[in-house]
Design a binder for these strands. Structure first.
Length: 387
RNA sequence: GCUGGGGUGGCGGAGUGGACAAUCGCAUUUCUCUGUAAAAGAAAUGUCCGAAAGGGCUACAUAGGUUCGAAUCCUGUCCCCAGCACCA
């Protein structure tokens, strides 16, 4: 990949200028970073967009730092939150951080030459004394911080802005200074925080820091993909789960995902877009996408398995019954633990709704005795076999 | 410090003594449809018994109390919020 490609594809914008960054990169190996606050236990495909970008810089020989916001994670970034966020304990944060590192190792190279360096911002933020902090805060004004859209919105609605939230952009900004980087990468929701870093950098180190934003992963309607906790597509999901989740994305996410998450050439992607527009079945391409991504995060064999499993289960309707349950109990009792609410009433509801079948026949009798070898299907994705 | 308001299901948010296991929206699950989905339409969503009709039990921050009867009234406790005052 050339410098120009790295700075173009999957890039929302570069501040202050793309040309400036490009020429800097051609003169020397730059130091760059992306920070993630370990507020959840899993990285999801949205994170992968930024991580991929980092990986590209790494391949070109630049010095990449993967920053884990163990300190800022405890404060909670107010970005995109209409109300304040729960704060986490340091143990929770460190545990999440460990997962993050492990999961991102599928994308970034943490060993060998020019390995990605992992840093924690608690290293400098945690050691700062109150007086140092106050002196440092002299570099930004409250007007500069309050100008942020989100704060303005809250002010307008008469909602609170807590001091910790107010200081958040400042803390994140200091990361750039502490590591003395040339570039920061982040999602478009991070523009404000990253620009604060740029300002702070200029004031303290008198140096230009570039800011590169990657687009948020959205479907064709602009909705974030994997936004809710339950639906998040985790990088560490089991291959089959991961594959299925990609398949259940809406069809209009396909091209975005190809562009941001794969190396497929832009020409090929626009071919696909055209084909779908002309009436080609999107499923075909979504399967390619799901396969590619599963392979990328796991390996080819696992991706094959996942695809096969998916085809059998949902297309040929011949699933593998692999969850073993004991026989002898009634149908309702047997399936209860696998229902949403894990209760008998829930099990009975499902039976009433024709959601349960035994050996291929819909069963409406909750008291039916389960015999050894019975194959029970609950809903469309739970498959039990009686011992 | 003073004064007032509030804590309801996964979330938002109704409900101010009986008809409340709690309107409604979101979310989730299932069914139908299909091209995997999505969309659309239908249903379900505390728990237990029951084939069903129906009936128990437990729940509206928490602990008590009043009442034939409480999410709703009273008291204590915990937690939130707003306004005012103070700001040398």
């Amino acid at each position: 990949m050339t410098i120009d490609e790295v700075l173009t594809r999957g890039v929302e914008r570069i501040l202050p200028t793309k040309d400036g960054l490009a020429s800097l990169m051609s003169k020397k190996k730059i130091k760059l970073y992306m920070g993630i606050d370990p507020t959840g236990s899993e990285l999801h495909i949205g994170h992968a967009v930024g991580l991929r970008k980092l990986a590209q810089f790494q391949k070109l020989g630049h010095k990449v730092i993967f920053l884990i916001g163990d300190f800022t994670g405890m404060i909670g970034d107010p970005s995109g939150k209409s109300s304040d966020r729960k704060t986490l304990t340091h143990e929770e944060v460190l545990k999440n951080a460990e997962n993050y590192k492990q999961q991102s190792s599928k994308i970034l190279n943490f060993t060998g030459d020019n390995a990605v360096e992992v840093k924690f911002n608690g290293e400098w933020l945690g050691k700062m004394s109150a007086i140092e902090f106050l002196k440092l805060s002299h570099n930004l004004t409250s007007a500069q911080i309050i100008e942020r859209d989100m704060f303005q919105e809250r002010l307008k609605k008469g909602q609170d802005i807590y001091m910790n939230e107010f200081l958040y952009p400042f803390m994140q900004a200091y990361d750039s200074v502490a590591m003395d980087v040339d570039l920061e990468i982040g999602g478009t929701d991070q523009v404000f925080n990253m620009l604060m870093g740029r300002k702070l950098m200029k004031n303290i180190l008198h140096k230009e820091k570039y800011v590169l934003t990657v687009p948020l992963l959205t479907d064709g309607n602009g909705n974030k993909i994997g936004k809710t906790e339950g639906n998040a597509i985790g990088l560490a999901d089991k291959p089959f789960d991961f594959y299925s989740k990609i398949m259940s994305l809406s069809d209009n996410s396909i091209t975005n995902c190809f562009t941001l998450l794969t190396n497929k050439s832009l020409e090929e992607i626009s071919e696909i877009e055209k084909a779908i527009k002309n009436g080609d079945n999107p499923m075909k391409y979504k399967k390619i996408l799901a396969f590619e991504l599963t392979k990328w995060l796991n390996d080819e064999d696992k991706a094959q398995d996942a695809q096969k499993h998916f085809e059998n289960t949902f297309q040929d309707k011949t699933p593998t019954f692999d969850i073993k349950v004991s026989s002898g109990g009634s149908l309702a009792e047997t399936i209860a633990p696998f229902t949403q609410r894990q209760s008998l009433s829930n099990a009975k509801e499902l039976i009433k709704q024709n959601a349960v079948d035994i050996n291929g026949n819909v069963s409406i009798d909750p008291s039916l005795k389960i015999k050894s070898g019975d194959k029970i299907k609950v809903g469309s994705r739970t498959f039990l076999i009686a011992k």
